[in-house]
């Protein structure tokens, strides 16, 4: 018995005269790692941005955990349980790694202005809890030793991990990763793959938008392929890999290489 966690229904997005997304519908099941691939300019990132509330689509709707997602309100999308990372890592550069993750707890903490000014017991308790959880989260992604390092001073791979930790701190049901392997070497990619598996193992559904076909095919339970803003396939990797249209559109050129 599979439960649908996330559903996109007939999403259309235009930029001026350019039809970036045409009737894109897809379904992500609870507990799976779902890959979204496609050649450059296929609309992956546009879809991602529409879904996380950065853009408003002309038509269509998103159903997440049974309710409709609001458009154009990124912070409400996060609140309903979808966290994201960015293709070009966006951390709070002047904050320490720990504080980045603590900032991620912002949404799930509720200290009021009054509580903060009076430092009452509830606020202090919450603050202590946030700090502890943030340390746990850093340990979870494996960069605990850098807790007090300024985010901008971390290595590229660690920055990526920190970004994931920060996203996880918002306690999402669905974690959406935008090309997390971009710019990583083979070792770092392997570690990332392991981390994503662990995250799924702990009950968080993962949406993976990737350019690295090998990573997607090896890691994902199901894969959807976008081309020219349309979904041309959605199935388990083995089937998608054999889909003629997909091969022509995307894998065709690189298929032999892999």
């Amino acid at each position: 018995m599979t439960i649908n966690l996330f559903e996109a229904k007939g999403i259309n997005k235009r930029f001026g005269g350019l039809q970036a997304l045409t009737d894109v519908s897809l379904t992500i099941r609870k507990g799976e790692i779902y890959g979204l691939i496609g050649p450059n300019g296929a609309g992956k990132t546009t879809f991602f941005n529409v879904m996380t509330g950065a853009y408003t689509p002309e038509e269509g709707e998103f159903i997440f955990a049974g309710t409709q997602l609001p458009f154009g309100k990124p912070h409400m999308v996060v609140e309903s349980g979808i966290a994201r990372t960015f293709q070009n890592i966006r951390l709070f550069r002047e904050l320490t790694a720990l504080e980045n993750v603590m900032a991620g707890h912002h949404l799930r903490s509720k200290a009021s202005l009054w509580g903060i000014l009076t430092q009452n017991r509830k606020t202090r308790e919450e603050e202590r809890l946030i700090t502890e959880r943030a340390y746990e989260m850093l340990r979870y992604v494996g960069i605990e030793r850098f807790a007090t390092t300024m985010a901008r001073n971390l290595s590229y791979g660690d920055q990526r991990r920190l970004e994931i930790a920060r996203a996880l701190a918002t306690e999402p049901q669905l974690l959406a990763l935008d090309e997390p392997a971009a710019g990583m070497n083979a070792t770092e990619t392997a570690q990332l793959r392991e981390l994503i598996s662990t995250i799924r193992g702990d009950g968080v559904t993962v949406l993976l938008i990737e350019h690295d076909v090998k990573l997607v095919m090896g890691l994902c339970d199901r894969v959807a392929v976008l081309n020219f803003g349309k979904k041309i396939a959605e199935d388990v990797p083995a089937v998608v890999q054999k889909n003629q249209e997909v091969i022509e559109a995307y894998l065709g050129s690189s298929h032999h290489a892999h």
Binding site: F86, E94, L95, A103, T170
Partner: peptide, 22 residues
Amino acid sequence: SRIGRGWAAIRDDELAAKAIGI
């Protein structure tokens, strides 16, 4: 406090701040 961290987040990267639900 969480408010101060929220401000710092906005100062450093507004888009990312929105993306973590601030």
